[in-house]
Design a binder for these strands. Sequence first.
DNA 1: TCGGCTTGAGAAAACCTTTTCCCAAATCGA
DNA 2: TCGATTTGGGAAAAGGTTTTCTCAAGCCGA
Lengths: 348, 348
Amino acid sequence: MSSDASPVPAKTPVTLREVAAAAGVSVATASKALNGQGRMTAETRERIRDVAQRLGFRPNSLAQSLLRRRSFTVGLLTNDTYGRFSLPLMAGVSDALVDNGVSVFLCNVEDDQRLGQLHVEAMLDKRVDGIIATGKRIDRHLPVDLSDLRVPVVYAFTQPDPGAVGLVSDDAGGARLAVEHFCRLGRRRIAHVTGPAGFEVVHTRADAYRAVLQENNLAVSDPLLGAWSEAWGHEAVGRLFGKAGKEGWPDAIFCGNDQIARGVIDALRERGIRVPDDVGVIGFDNWEIVAEATRPPLTSVDMNLATLGREAGLALLSLVGGQPAAPGIRKLPCRLVVRQSCGRPPGG
Amino acid sequence: MSSDASPVPAKTPVTLREVAAAAGVSVATASKALNGQGRMTAETRERIRDVAQRLGFRPNSLAQSLLRRRSFTVGLLTNDTYGRFSLPLMAGVSDALVDNGVSVFLCNVEDDQRLGQLHVEAMLDKRVDGIIATGKRIDRHLPVDLSDLRVPVVYAFTQPDPGAVGLVSDDAGGARLAVEHFCRLGRRRIAHVTGPAGFEVVHTRADAYRAVLQENNLAVSDPLLGAWSEAWGHEAVGRLFGKAGKEGWPDAIFCGNDQIARGVIDALRERGIRVPDDVGVIGFDNWEIVAEATRPPLTSVDMNLATLGREAGLALLSLVGGQPAAPGIRKLPCRLVVRQSCGRPPGG
DNA sequence: TCGGCTTGAGAAAACCTTTTCCCAAATCGA
DNA sequence: TCGATTTGGGAAAAGGTTTTCTCAAGCCGA
């Protein structure tokens, strides 16, 4: 059925010239007929369209791009090979763009200056309409200079150049979501176990954590800074619950990521401390495969990275379309995904 | 420094025509000078090159592609948004291609027939030189028909069309690696806990598992089929170690993936069974973030997906270059990454 | 019947590069 | 000195499409 019926999948693509010849008109007329431009009888237009359809004509994007100075292609730069963050981000970007008929060049630059340069030049040579730069850390630049390009650039989840358009997650807001949730649940002694001091988000979130506690007249204990690992979660539990007096123990722990939270929960269980009955736990990142495998499943802050990517894609598109965009960093809200590790409200 | 020195980043790209004018030659001569073609005095060639350099000339890939009928661009189709498998794969593909001056279109088709069609048509319109199809399962097709395209297609880690070129991991070999390693370590009662029966690899690996046991004159117990989850790992340990007689307990467990292995190890620890002293554990996938977080760190079979991707990229390139490639499925070897969950050899 | 306007459609330029001829000048051999 | 060959470089076509101009035919009112 697929071999001889219907539009033949020509081995060599059919050109507008061939369509025009088959319809007995000039290429100019054929072009106008297919694009709804120009003036001609409805009959002629129909006939040309039929012929094009029958021949399986598809315009050569290369030729179109050359002429229009617009390729409907953008470059997506990333340095996150291992991609826990960049994957949803990239998926979001890609979705937003593909829905608008724009293709995406995948450019993995690792942390290699040379590779970055190479990619950027290749993209420019291929006349991309714009570039999206994404990373795995909000507080680091990609190893490429995108400051003086002739195409618009949008930064998503990576440090933007000054004066550029950047989208990041609202980490402070995300932290508030978690800590305020604990407060509403009636938790009073809320600890914070998080990553290394070298990350800006560690401080952003810690500040928000402190602010919420103060707003609720709760005692503020110093956040425990360590690593983004399960092992650190374990160790932190040792420090928090090692003290003699049970009354000093926290009844809630807000963790800087889901791996730490996983380590925390495992360590608590090993000590016979019940989650969420004795201690509530909330993570960050909502890495589903981890959050759903903890026992009990982990409540976590989701950075909505797919949405972030989508927004970045749309922002670039409007820039490409000539809309001026307000430069600066736009922070997108996080959301709290409630599972079972934080407990139910007292009344519930 | 970057604003007025050095090759000016022209707002509008400089064309060959401009280079030719500036050098006082024709565009034909300019082209030939830059490409090392044609005949002219060395002095002329040098002068043109200098001018091009000074003006920051870069040829317009669109125009080149149009003429050469070769775009130095390929499409990468994937349905693995979540990407534990596709990320290293894509990184490998991308590396191999970029090293050869080829750009990659990222096409996320989810499991959406319509989206797949859309992407394929867009790629064809943009005159990609070839397509790489990747997935998350070896035994499933992508939701797109790539059988009658006018460009070569390579399948990596997804089910190829008959007669096409496909690269997959050698799951049987990978399983052998694990089970033989156990045998060498002197383990005698080796169990296999793996995923659901609906996956072909479950059977491939189980068969290899059985074969190795027979070759070593060891008792073959039926593999335990379940899910690809930690929870199933837990449950499986309950089944394996629930029986009364300690002498019937396995002394090694080969797991179908790292999450199962993680569940197994956690469950063993909860029962007071020591890993690797009492029971050795080996996982599959070598998902580093999991394998390194288990206690003890997990020995695991690595499918070398980055290498697989790289090979797929190179295979496509040679196809594009006109080299005929032997159709059929090529299986690439796995490797065993030894950590501490399987124990040391008796003598060590 | 004639001048002006609309209609329908084609010719040609443009986008930018590569490549195939082609030609004038220079060089060579005799 | 003359014909043949080489040398250095240019003109033009090609690749496929879009768009601006142009133009002939048909129509209107007078």
